[in-house]
Amino acid sequence: MPVIPRESHSQRYERWVYLTLLRSMANPGQWENFPKTDMHSPTGLLGAFQMGCRCLLDAEPMIWCEPGNSPLISALSDLRLRWASDPSEADYLLLNLDPSRIMNCIHTLKVGTPLYPNASATLLIALPTRNGSFQKANLSGPGIRGERIASLPAIDGNFWAARNTACRYPLGWDVILFSNEAVMSVPRSTNINLAQPETESGPEPH
């Protein structure tokens, strides 16, 4: 009998994380829960964020991380990532301390070129608190049936407006948001209508 490879627990968990990310990209503006598991896996916000990073990153792309985020950098050290010195040259930006720090250079992020729209930045953002303020928005585009009312985390008063300015499909950047146990994606193809600019505070609707 041939020896059939069996999927290990950690491999299965990695595949589930990958599927969760796939589904979140296919359903913009919707929180997709990470798989519940009693297997040994990193827990908490850093854990979920780390699993997402591990799923997406390898030694090829340029990664930028907030200065002073040594816990994350050391947690990912085995991936042999290439670190970018400036956000404008990064393919992935890891933001899990204070995402609003990116605001001063947000207009310099890579949006790709007509020939290579894929040569653009992806923002991986961990939400520091689940009870932060949220901004109501009307989403439409691929992956959304008609329209979807979503509560986008108000990372900074101007973040989503800046995102709308940067995204001229097919150019633009993609955003993946992580909470403790769920992930939400906002790809560049999504239209965000920030009709109600006032922010609302309160627990995150799930």
């Binding site: 796939l22 990209m25 691929p142 992956g143 049936r145 193809s189």
Partner: peptide
């Protein structure tokens, strides 16, 4: 068109992969 499911298309010989998200024109 505007299908509920995710479609993934892959060409092995040419090493190209592309996808159609759900609810896409």
């Amino acid at each position: 068109n505007q299908s509920a499911h995710l479609t993934i298309l892959c060409a092995g010989r040419e090493k190209r992969i592309y996808a159609i998200p759900p609810w896409t024109d």
